[in-house]
């Protein structure tokens, strides 16, 4: 009974469904934080959570259990039976750009706090609302 349950979990359809539900759930947690929090730094954390959810979804739906990592190691001598290396390269670029974005955004938040002394987005009245 336990072995048949474990066998059901290993099927590729079930793994893709788990990845889709889990990453969209994480995305929804980030969206909830973006909509309801008021501090500037909390908003940046929520955006970062949403980005992490998208990266996980991207790499999770092309994952096959029988294929290995796209690197020639000991034991492999040919480039067959490997995962796709193109999405790995795209996600690498996206992670680095996300970090650069956060460093710049946090720097802007510090400068705004030094100018006006506020970090609550309800109290930012410069745009007139």
């Amino acid at each position: 009974m336990m072995s048949s349950l474990l066998d059901w979990f290993i099927q590729p359809d079930v793994i893709t469904a788990i990845v889709a539900f889990g990453s969209m759930g994480l995305f929804f947690v980030g969206l909830f934080g973006l909509l309801t929090q008021r501090h500037l730094i909390k908003i940046f954390i929520s955006i970062s959570l949403m980005e992490a959810a998208v990266f996980l979804y991207f790499l999770g739906t092309i994952f096959h259990r029988e294929l290995t990592a796209p690197i020639l190691g000991d034991g492999h001598t040919a480039f067959t039976g490997m995962n796709d290396p193109i999405p790995h390269a795209m996600i690498l670029t996206a992670i680095v750009i996300g970090m650069a974005l956060f460093a710049l955004g946090v720097s802007f938040a510090i400068e705004y706090y030094k100018l006006t002394g506020r970090t609550d987005i309800n109290k930012m009245k410069e745009m007139g609302e």
């Binding site: 474990l6 979990f9 793994i15 788990i18 539900f21 889990g22 947690v29 980030g30 959570l49």
Partner: peptide, 19 residues
């Protein structure tokens, strides 16, 4: 699949606590 499920569930709980 079980490990992936457990990691996702714990990640969602920790993310909600962080927000």
């Amino acid at each position: 699949g079980l490990i992936i499920l457990a990691t996702f569930v714990s990640m969602i709980v920790v993310a909600f606590a962080s927000v």
